[in-house]
Simulated scan of single mutants.
Amino acid sequence: MSAQNSTGIQTLLDSEREASKIVQKAREFRTKRVREARDEAKKEIEAYRQAKDEEFKKFEAEHTQGNKQAEDEANKEAEAKIKEIHAAGKKGQSEVVENLLKAVFEVKPVPPEKA
Rank of each mutant, 00 (worst) to 15 (best):
I45C: 12
T7I: 08
I9K: 10
G92R: 03
V23D: 14
Q4I: 06
S94D: 15
T64E: 14
E36H: 13
K52E: 15
E73D: 15
G89N: 09
E106G: 02
T31L: 09
A19I: 14
E95A: 07
A87I: 03
Q65S: 13
K83I: 04
A103M: 06
K81V: 02
A87V: 04
Q69T: 05
S20A: 11
L101D: 11
I45D: 13
E54W: 03
K68V: 15
V96A: 11
S20C: 02
E54P: 00
Q10C: 09
N5T: 06
E98K: 15
T7H: 04
K25M: 08
E113M: 13
E95G: 12
K42L: 11
E77P: 00
E84R: 01
R38V: 10
D14V: 10
R30N: 14
A61F: 03
V34R: 01
N75H: 03
K43F: 03
Y48T: 11
I45M: 13
K32T: 04
K83E: 01
A70Q: 02
V97N: 08
D39L: 14
E98F: 09
S6H: 02
R49F: 02
K81S: 04
Q50W: 09
E71A: 14
E95K: 05
E55N: 02
T31H: 09
A115R: 12
K32D: 00
E16I: 07
E95F: 05
E36K: 05
A74G: 01
L100G: 11
L101T: 14
E98R: 15
E73M: 11
T11A: 15
S20R: 08
A3K: 09
K114G: 06
G66H: 04
K52A: 09
I45Q: 12
T7V: 10
S6Q: 08
K91R: 10
E79C: 01
A61D: 06
E77M: 03
Q69K: 05
A51I: 04
E44D: 08
T31N: 10
A78W: 02
E55M: 02
V34Y: 01
P109T: 12
A3T: 13
K68D: 11
A88F: 12
Q69F: 07
E113P: 00
E40W: 04
N67H: 12
S2F: 10
F59L: 05
K42W: 11
K76Q: 15
A115L: 13
S2V: 05
K52I: 15
R49H: 04
R38C: 11
T11V: 10
I45Y: 11
A37K: 15
R30Y: 09
K102W: 11
E28V: 03
F59H: 07
A74F: 02
P111Q: 15
E54T: 01
V97G: 01
A19D: 07
T31V: 13
N75C: 05
E62I: 05
